[in-house]
Design a protein around this nucleic acid. Structure first.
Lengths: 193, 193
DNA sequence: TAGTTTTCTTGCCATAAGGCAAGTTTTATT
DNA sequence: AATAAAACTTGCCTTATGGCAAGAAAACTA
């Protein structure tokens, strides 16, 4: 019997009836990933998503010059999903990969649809999660225009300090829209102040 | 009696039953905006959204240095909405303003909620629209990192050629993450080739 | 139509960030 | 522990883009 305690933290008894929780929670399946395992690969159509109980995950795309660009990092409590591939049923451009060992809870599309259309609270929460991702992406996008690289790095440090421990300089740099060389210099500048 | 023909193009009879259309369509109210009118102002909580039948709209934020940064452009067929303010019920950071005279169809939050929770096809379409916005934003964000300014401009020209007619250089420039000076030079470079 | 304001262009110079490559440190592998 | 492979730092120089300001062009306005 798996430990579903984590899921009661995502689907809170204050937001759902007991019946609803008993419908929702058992639909999630516990899955583990080893370091470097892929959740999703470019070209596939996402048919599942995951809630992260532990570990670190990164998503990235390969641009036209073959450079790897980090699009997001995920850790405990986050949802690992390619929203557009999952909901539009299109092949994705993204790769999603475990940076460390991960314990996750998985749900597939058909089960999601069934819950989404039958449980009002489930779709309210799902919508809130999606809009939250949209909001975060928009802020990141504005920051890319309005702030200089050093400030973007400082903000990331402040908001997700645990990332720095687990993720290589280069992967952080591309997330910030700069090269690893530049990030190394920014780091140095910060350290000597 | 207003002309609702436009709405039958958004809510297609192939996707909805006659009953559903007769429930949905009359809930939208036709509203007109004059040039420079605001749909939404920073600090307000969005309580409505609009479908654009005609005209051009721009959303922007003011950054910490007081610069105005364009976050999006909208034209015929687009939905004008601040997703996060509308769904998370938070004050917005955005300003949304008519660039030209506009004819729009307006829906308020409570009516939206009622339709969303009672009509399966309506929420499917709504989710698709939101995910489509997410996808567009993500591509824009990746482009900001992967492509140089000239290529971003060329891509915008190709995807939304009608914008160039209606929108000032400066407003386009901040959308592309560059200054009006730089965009002017890029334009010149393109012209002389 | 003349006058005023806004938008756009252009020159000059400054600066943030990139490209490349060598060297160093850290982390994996056997 | 020894070796190999990654990851990170740093120097040197290049490049894309920015800042400012003046002038030209276009768009309003009275």
């Amino acid at each position: 019997m798996t430990n579903q305690h984590f899921l009661y933290n995502v689907f809170k008894p204050s937001d759902f009836t007991t019946d609803e929780l008993e419908t929702i929670i058992p639909k999630f399946k516990e899955v583990k990933f080893n370091k470097n395992d892929f959740f999703l690969n470019e070209g596939q159509t996402a048919n599942k998503y995951w809630l992260v109980q532990s570990g670190f995950v990164r998503s990235y795309v390969i641009d036209t010059e073959g450079n790897d660009i980090t699009t997001n990092f995920y850790s405990v409590g986050d949802i690992v999903i390619d929203w557009s591939s999952f909901f539009l049923r299109n092949p994705t451009r993204e790769n999603i990969q475990a940076l460390t060992e991960c314990v996750c809870w998985q749900l597939d599309f058909d089960t999601f649809q069934q819950l989404f259309h039958s449980i009002k609270n489930f779709r309210e929460q799902g919508r809130t999660t999606l809009v939250g991702s949209y909001f975060a992406l928009k802020n990141h996008s504005i920051s890319m225009i309005a702030d200089e690289a050093k400030d973007r790095y400082l903000r990331l440090l402040k908001e997700k300090p645990h990332l720095i421990q687990n993720i290589s300089l280069k992967q952080i740099a591309t997330y910030l829209g700069i090269t690893d060389t530049s990030l190394s210099r920014i780091r140095k500048e910060i350290a000597t102040k």
